[in-house]
Amino acid sequence: MTDRLSDTDARLLAARAGVTLDGDRAHNAAAAAAGPLAAADGQSRTLAFEAEPAQFLAIQQRCKP
């Protein structure tokens, strides 16, 4: 996965949400998201139903005292 969106890609991505990123706004937004994007990558290799987001509450229940 690419850690960092190009300014053009960032502008296009925002435009898909209907938001205009002019000037250096696209550059700054892409830079801000770059680190976390790289860190989160990899969870998709977890092939287990227990990792589905909706099951957080069930796991939370199991983690009570």
Partner: peptide, 20 residues
């Protein structure tokens, strides 16, 4: 605006990791 840069797959990666 930085939040607009996060793909759905990355958001779901983070959400899937939460319980484990």
């Amino acid at each position: 605006e930085a939040g607009l840069m996060v793909p759905a797959t990355s958001y779901l990666d983070a959400m899937r990791a939460r319980g484990p």
